[in-house]
Amino acid sequence: MGTIKLKNIRTYSYHGCLLEEGKIGSDYSVDLEVKTDLQQSSISDDLKDTVDYVLLNRIVVEEMAIRSHLLEHVVQRIITRSLKEIPSIWCIKTAVSKLNPPIDGDVEAVSIEMEQSRN
């Protein structure tokens, strides 16, 4: 087994419950971690034997472009799509952080992290 991590995927997206968040948007950071079997790819040196992190990045960017009120909803979409499109993933953990959220206080980020294993 092994782990593939994509750290700090940056997007400008339009998530949030406030009307203004849907209009002006905000900066986001996404971390993604997948568990998969890396044994074959470590021997073959062939992309077809591993999880393509370019595809993982594309899934994140495309799902972040779809507006949601809650970060939980975005995270679940990323997880569901990744498991559907990449059968070799057996566990995925995803965190989405809204940077400088519009809340009363000096808060660097708010984050939602979820993990799911394949049934």
Results as ranks from 00 to 15, higher is better:
70 L>C: 05
68 S>L: 01
37 D>V: 09
45 D>K: 08
99 L>Y: 10
105 G>R: 09
42 S>T: 13
94 T>R: 02
75 V>D: 00
96 V>M: 07
54 V>Y: 08
98 K>P: 06
116 Q>W: 04
100 N>E: 01
55 L>K: 11
68 S>K: 14
61 V>P: 03
11 T>K: 06
114 M>P: 00
40 Q>P: 06
50 T>D: 00
62 E>R: 13
99 L>Q: 13
54 V>A: 09
53 Y>T: 02
15 H>T: 01
11 T>C: 15
99 L>C: 11
92 I>T: 12
8 N>D: 00
115 E>N: 01
3 T>F: 13
59 I>G: 01
117 S>N: 06
14 Y>P: 04
49 D>Y: 09
93 K>Q: 01
5 K>N: 08
18 L>Q: 14
89 I>G: 07
78 I>H: 08
87 P>S: 15
105 G>H: 07
27 D>L: 10
8 N>Q: 12
69 H>Y: 08
40 Q>D: 04
88 S>T: 10
23 K>C: 01
2 G>I: 11
66 I>E: 01
51 V>K: 11
26 S>P: 05
89 I>M: 05
59 I>F: 04
25 G>W: 13
10 R>G: 04
116 Q>L: 09
5 K>W: 02
34 V>M: 07
6 L>A: 12
17 C>S: 08
27 D>N: 14
75 V>R: 03
61 V>K: 14
51 V>Q: 12
2 G>T: 12
1 M>P: 09
109 A>W: 11
46 D>E: 15
98 K>W: 02
116 Q>C: 03
115 E>H: 02
61 V>G: 03
59 I>V: 06
111 S>D: 03
88 S>D: 05
103 I>H: 08
70 L>H: 06
80 T>D: 15
20 E>L: 08
117 S>F: 04
38 L>H: 04
8 N>I: 00
114 M>H: 02
114 M>I: 03
95 A>H: 03
85 E>Q: 15
80 T>V: 10
39 Q>T: 12
73 H>T: 12
41 S>V: 12
47 L>I: 14
68 S>D: 05
3 T>I: 15
96 V>F: 09
14 Y>Q: 04
66 I>S: 02
62 E>V: 10
94 T>N: 06
19 L>N: 07
77 R>T: 11
14 Y>M: 02
31 D>I: 07
26 S>C: 07
87 P>Y: 09
100 N>H: 14
59 I>W: 04
55 L>Q: 10
7 K>T: 02
59 I>H: 02
112 I>C: 15
74 V>P: 01
96 V>H: 07
71 L>N: 06
94 T>L: 10
35 K>I: 00
36 T>L: 07
50 T>Q: 05
49 D>L: 09
62 E>H: 10
44 S>Y: 12
34 V>A: 05
25 G>Q: 14
64 M>V: 08
118 R>L: 13
119 N>C: 05
74 V>M: 03
92 I>W: 12
70 L>E: 00
93 K>E: 00
50 T>I: 02
107 V>T: 05
45 D>Y: 05
68 S>C: 14
52 D>H: 06
92 I>N: 14
77 R>I: 09
102 P>A: 10
27 D>T: 06
101 P>Y: 09
29 S>M: 07
24 I>Y: 00
78 I>S: 07
